[in-house]
Nucleic acid binder design. Structure first.
Length: 287
DNA sequence: ACCCAGGGTCGTC
DNA sequence: GACGACCCTGGG
């Protein structure tokens, strides 16, 4: 494959640091020049923001502009989304200023399912390490500028790993969950293509919840980060913390009912709850 | 050295 | 519905 490149001009909301470090993805790494390099699908890409331009360079399976327009959701107007969210309250306004230029990536469903099963009761550096090792051991190698990169393993590729193999790669107690979820997909008990074509969010949630290791929070992340369901509101420790701090004000945040937070999020953020969640998460986790 | 928490889920009561 | 257990790692 040959290297391709294209440039995006300044009139679009695009801040690499905020996009890649807001917690939605695990395979993008910062370089010495502050650009980011990552692997998605069978593409290896470098993203470099220089003043008002964003330069995309890399090797892509198809036309780089099409690939990036899809993955980075470039046709969506984030200015408009931010305008809507800013009206809600001052907290939302501040979080948007902090995370300015966040975009929700259009990630692969399978990769997102496995990645967020691994995320359970885990920290980001370790999650990234585990996903790298899975890719290196079971994915396909792509060499770009003399550096080896590895695609995220397909269900067939990951299916070669035993529970013990997974344990050796550091998955811990998530080994069985990843193994069994892989089996369900390989055995066609779960049809990923069908899920992608489904319209009803609640129906998709029910199917995802059948997968071992997928609970409410992980299901919401999967739908937000790979199925473009902006109305879901994943609640993790950080989001519960910030919502309690700002609105609920319970003395013991661990006692705050998730149902209460869901209701509040729906009332305040409506169809944009998922994007609001990303701004809030990034804002409070970093603070 | 020890303790704690991390983008939760699962089994049990 | 609540509650504790769960692999492992980095930081206090």
């Amino acid at each position: 494959m040959k290297e391709q490149s294209f440039v995006l001009n300044d009139d679009i909301d695009f801040e690499p640091k905020h996009i890649f470090e807001c917690g939605q993805c695990f395979r993008w790494n910062v370089n010495e020049d502050n650009s980011y390099t990552g692997v998605f699908g069978e593409n290896v890409l470098n993203v470099n923001k220089d003043k008002n331009k964003v330069v995309f360079t890399g090797i892509c399976k198809d036309n780089i502009i099409d690939v990036c327009t899809d993955y980075f959701d470039l046709d969506r107007d984030y200015q408009e989304i931010k305008k809507e969210l800013s009206k809600i309250d001052n907290n939302m306004k501040k979080s948007i200023e902090y995370g300015n230029g966040i975009r929700i990536l259009n990630q692969d469903l399978w990769e997102t399912i496995i990645s967020f099963i691994i995320s359970a009761n885990n920290n980001i550096p370790r999650i990234k390490g585990i996903i790298e090792r899975l890719s290196k051991n079971y994915g396909k190698e792509i060499v770009y500028k003399d550096v080896s990169y590895y695609t995220f393993p397909s269900p067939e590729e990951l299916g070669k790993a035993s529970v013990e193999d997974l344990r050796k790669l550091g998955l811990g107690f998530r080994d069985k969950r990843v193994y069994e979820t892989t089996r369900l997909v390989l055995d066609r008990k779960i049809d990923l293509e069908k899920i992608k074509s489904m319209q009803n969010t609640e129906e998709i949630r029910e199917i995802l919840l059948q997968l071992p290791g997928v609970g409410e929070k992980v299901a919401d992340c999967i739908m937000l980060f790979s199925l473009k369901r902006f109305d879901v509101f994943p609640i993790d420790v950080w989001v519960r913390r910030v919502m309690n701090e700002l609105y609920i004000k319970n003395d013991d945040e661990t006692k705050v009912n998730k149902k209460e937070i869901q209701a509040l999020a729906k009332e305040k953020y409506k169809e944009l709850a998922g994007i609001a969640q990303q701004y809030l998460f990034y804002w409070k986790r970093d603070a």
